[in-house]
Nucleic acid binder design. Sequence first.
DNA 1: GGTTGATGATCCGTGTCTAA
DNA 2: TTAGACACGGATCATCAACC
Length: 337
Amino acid sequence: MDLTMANQGGNNNMLRDYRKGNWNLQETMVLIEAKKMDDQRRMKRVGESSERGKPAELRWKWVEDYCWKNGCLRSQNQCNDKWDNLMRDFKKVREYERRVAERGGEEKSYWRIDKNERKDNNLPSNMLPQIYEALVEVVERKGQREAAASGGAGSSRANVVPATSIVEKSAASHVLGHLSMPPPVQQYPIIQAPAMLLPLPPPAQAPAEPPTIPSSQPLPASDSETSEYSDSPAKRRKRGSGGGDGEGTSGGVGTLEEVGSAISKSASIIAEAIRSCEEREERRHREVVSLQQRRLEIEESKAEMNRQGINGLVDAINKLANSILALAAHKDQSTSK
DNA sequence: GGTTGATGATCCGTGTCTAA
DNA sequence: TTAGACACGGATCATCAACC
C-alpha cells in the first residue's frame, strides 16, 4: 500500500494508493481484460489513417487506468510485471498442451497432472483454467489479427474486426466508445488516449497550460504529464541515464527568463497539485468519517433490533409460562372437584 | 531509400518477500 | 527452510521520426 509516486514516477500517480501483495483472481482477470481492450483499441487506432504517424502511446498507463476503473488498484509497473509473468506461465502451458496434442495423448494434459509433475515439467504449478482461457482469448486472437493484418498486401489493420470481449460487452462499448472519439487538437504531442477515458472535471487553468492533477478521483494522465513524466517500464529503466537535451547551454537573458518562467510555472503546478491532493485527502477523510458514522448507526439499529427481538421473545415466553400456569391451575381445580 | 537515435514492448534472469 | 509470487533491471527487438 505504500507504492506511490516515490517509486512510480508519474506525478499523476501521486494520489494513487497502489495495492501490494499477491494478485487475486479478480485482479488478474481485470488485467487480462485491460490488455484485451488495449489490443482492440490499438488495432482500431492503427487502422485509422488519421492516427498514423502519431507517437506511440503509453499502453501500460492506459492499462493501469483501465484496471483502476475496474477495481484493480495496481500500478502500470505492477501490471506490466504481472503480465510478463502471466505470459511466461501461459506460454509454458500452451507449449506443453501443444506437445500433448501432437503426441496424441501420450502425456496427460496440464490440467490433469499434479503439482509435482508440473514442477518436473518446468510448468507453472498453479495456473488457473479461467486465467488460461482468458489468456488464450487475448493472445490467440491477437495473433490471428496480426496474421490477418500482415497477410493482406497493404491492407490496414482497420479491416480486422476487433475481438469480442470475454466478459463484458458494456465495458468494451464504454471504452471503445470513448476511444473512437475524434482526437482532440494536440498541443502536447504525446498520448491522448488515457485522458479520454474518464470525464475530467473542469480544469482550473486555461487549456493551454500544462495540466495539473485533477482533484476528484484518480485519473488518467493528462498529456504533458505522460510526455514529461511518463513511467512506462522501459522508460523507468532508462531514466536516470541522462537526457535533458532540451536544456540549452548557450544561456542568455532570454534563456534565464525562460528558465525563470518555467520554474514559476512548475512551482504553480506543484502548488496546485499539492492543494488538490490536500483537498482530496480531506474529502476522503470526511467520507471515511461519514462512513464510520453510518456504520455505527447501522450497528446501533441492529443492536436495538436485537434488543427488541429479545424483549419480544422474553414477553412471549412469559406469556406462555403464565398460560401454562393458568392452565395447570385450572386443571388442578377441575380434578379436585 | 538508408541510417540513426529515441522510445516502447517484451523476454529473461535474479533478488526479495511471505506464507506454509 | 522452501516454494511461489512479486519486483527489478539488463538485453533485445520493433517502430517511428529526423536527417542525409
